[in-house]
């Protein structure tokens, strides 16, 4: 089934960018004109209002990761880029699905949502809309199981991620992108 989770071809980049108009177009345009594939994309304000954070899952079969990072780095509004190793970071996605749930299967669907610690967010006569947040592999598993009941509509968000903490409370690797030592590559013209 769909391997939406921790495929070896996929790498997660968190890109800190200036919060200026057109920045997403610059990043997306770079990917399309250089033939890089975006697997998933999430954009949101960061904890500093001058900057936004773009989390990009890239398909590195299309080109070497090093080249993608270096080309991204050349964009003037890109402040820093951090590559997150899936083994050493916490990755989350959100899944919303409307599922067939007639009287005879409704109990099973509700039970499945409960096992996955999801939520029922809307109820119709013979359908349910369910929500699940979690690691991409967990969402993959849920999607596979719920499909048997009939998925009417489904949406998954782009992935967001942060590095794991070690026992001393520090990020394992790499540290926060705002800090200069976190730069995967040094910024250069």
């Amino acid at each position: 089934m769909s391997v939406y989770g921790t495929d070896k071809r996929h790498h997660t980049l968190t890109v800190l960018v200036e919060n200026k108009s057109g920045v997403l177009a610059r990043v997306a345009g770079l990917f399309s004109r250089r033939g890089y594939n975006i697997f998933s994309l999430a954009v949101a304000p960061s904890d500093n209002e001058r900057f936004s954070r773009i989390t990009i899952v890239v398909d590195v079969e299309s080109s070497p990761l090093e080249q993608i990072i270096k080309q991204l780095d050349k964009l003037i509004p890109v402040v820093s880029i951090t590559e997150l190793d899936p083994e050493r970071s916490r990755e989350r996605e959100l899944l919303l699905a409307t599922v067939e749930a007639a009287a005879d299967t409704r109990g099973q669907v509700i039970q499945l949502v409960g096992v996955f610690e999801g939520k029922i967010v809307d109820v119709g006569p013979d359908r349910l809309t369910v929500m699940l947040a979690g690691a991409p592999t967990k969402l993959d598993d849920f999607e596979d199981l719920i499909r048997a009941y009939g998925i009417v509509e489904m949406q998954r968000s782009g992935r967001v991620a942060l590095p794991m903490l070690d026992r001393s409370g520090e990020h394992l690797a790499p540290p926060r992108p705002e800090s200069p030592v976190a730069l995967t590559t040094e910024k250069a013209g």
Binding site: V17, E18, R50, L75, I76, P77, V78, V79, S80, E186, K187, A188, G189
Partner: peptide, 8 residues
Amino acid sequence: DLPGYHPL
């Protein structure tokens, strides 16, 4: 205002 530009 070029926080992301540091030429080598």
